[in-house]
């Protein structure tokens, strides 16, 4: 139990900062126009202000109530996102199979436990499934293997 609801205070604060940054960027980079003939900047400017207002509505009452500390995981999201990022990096230069191996192997570390045998079997099965559905079944024009060097 926290003495204040810091989760909503920080969340509201982020909304305020994000909203104001958005408004500032829109107002300085795009033409506002008039209410009758709006330019590209008018609608986003209004949106940013609205978001910041909601941030205030969220953060202010949070100062006057107790809150709970949310559970924040660090390693699980890191491995999952790193897996997806590895796919993005490998798919172009190396092709589909290496990219699948990258996402499957890296993301399974998110369990924080390594099971080498079941991981190897999973990799083989998933590559097979992907080849069958996307290449044989749907005929997508994605290279399976590529050697960039």
């Amino acid at each position: 139990m926290l003495s204040r609801d810091y989760r909503d205070i920080v969340g509201g604060g982020l909304l305020i900062v994000g909203g104001l940054l958005f408004t500032w960027y829109a107002a300085t980079h795009y033409e506002l126009g008039t209410l009758r003939r709006m330019g590209p900047g008018m609608f986003p400017t209004g949106l940013g202000v609205t978001l910041a207002l909601f941030g205030v509505l969220m953060a202010v009452p949070a100062f006057f109530r107790q809150g709970e500390m949310p559970v924040i995981r660090i390693w699980t999201p890191l491995f999952v996102l790193a897996g997806v990022a590895a796919f993005a990096m490998t798919i172009r230069p190396f092709g589909l199979i290496p990219a699948i191996l990258a996402v499957v192997v890296i993301s399974s570390f998110a369990e924080l436990k390594v099971r080498p045998v079941s991981l190897a079997i999973l990799c083989i099965v998933l590559c097979l499934i992907a080849w069958l559905t996307f290449r044989v079944g749907l005929g997508l024009p994605i290279a399976m293997w590529r050697w960039p060097f």
Binding site: V84, I91, L96, V103, V104, L126, I129, L140
Partner: peptide, 25 residues
């Protein structure tokens, strides 16, 4: 633990195959 890598794989291939764009991944 067997299911989620498969889900992620489908997410990656699914997104990539729309425009063959790794930017979208």
């Amino acid at each position: 633990h067997l299911l989620f890598p498969a889900v992620l794989m489908f997410i990656c291939i699914g997104t990539y195959s729309v425009n063959n764009s790794s930017f979208e991944v």
